[in-house]
Nucleic acid binder design. Structure first.
Length: 262
DNA sequence: ATGGTGGACAATCCA
């Protein structure tokens, strides 16, 4: 089984990149973030016409998640469902599907703006709410096959950024966000990217606003694939795919995917 | 360099 994640920064503007990637890599699951399309405007037929299945939940201009699958998923729900989803960030940051016995949680974690901003507080709380969601939905990580993917807007260790000392503290790389993220991984998630790729300098995101960021190695690893132990022990490979960066209209994120003996 | 670029969407907001 192949599971992939991609912050597409508008599903409509990068539709061809996504379709080409699906065709070339044949994943079982592709999780998208920042689709930036209300449900009526989501290009559903463009995926289903080529045989893919897709579930999605979006809003105007911002956020939005989708999950594309090879076969139809058995369950799909959206949002944290804790009664606290505001209109602004309603249910467009989390998709939860079940596919062949695997529970996939696809999240676009709030970015947080800056350390003093109210949105950063919202981000820290959001991680806490996600942990509650997991505890509520799964008895334990040992007994559940859960895969958590997405743009998690956290670079959890020094080697997940190009210059930790220079960047620290940042909303995606500071103690508070690392602790909040650890609160979720404490559920029982293993960072299978690091199981397969332990070396530094491997990134998934480069800021558009930094000139020549990719060539200069000024990246961040904020797109993640984490799994519960029973899934982690069956992972065989994790890879960053740079194809989306080489096109005429490059994305700021890469595709990341993992293969499992499942 | 308190900027920069890209996307949505129509004046700015977000990353």
């Amino acid at each position: 089984m192949r599971i992939a994640t991609f912050n597409c920064n508008s599903v409509r503007s990068r539709l061809q990149i996504i379709l080409d990637w699906l065709d070339a890599n044949s994943p079982d699951i592709l999780a998208l973030q920042e689709t930036k399309a209300v449900d009526d405007d989501f290009p559903e037929s463009e995926f289903t016409d080529t045989g893919w299945h897709v579930v999605y939940r979006g809003q105007k201009s911002y956020n939005g998640v989708a999950v594309i699958t090879k076969e139809k998923c058995t369950k799909a729900s959206f949002g944290l469902q804790d009664g606290l989803d505001s209109d602004e960030d309603s249910s467009t940051r989390l998709a939860h599907i079940e596919y062949k016995g695997i529970h996939l949680i696809n999240t676009y974690v709030p970015q947080g703006r800056d350390l003093e901003h109210e949105k950063f507080k919202f981000k820290l709380e959001w991680f806490g709410r996600l942990r509650k969601y997991l505890d509520k939905n799964f008895k334990s990580s040992a007994k559940s096959k859960v895969v958590w993917v997405g743009d998690l807007n956290v670079a959890p260790t020094p080697i997940d950024v190009h210059d930790s000392k220079k960047i620290w503290p940042h909303v995606c790389h500071c103690q508070a966000v690392i602790d909040a993220f650890a609160g979720v991984t404490g559920f029982g998630f293993i960072d299978i990217f690091r199981k397969h790729i332990p070396e530094e300098g491997k990134f998934t995101f480069w800021d558009y606003r930094v000139r020549g960021a990719l060539e200069r190695g000024l990246g961040w690893r904020i797109d993640h694939i984490l799994t519960t132990p029973s899934v982690a022990e069956r992972s065989t490979k994790v890879e960053i795919d740079f194809e989306a960066r080489k096109l005429e209209k490059p994305s700021d994120h890469t595709f990341v995917f993992a293969d499992f003996d499942l």
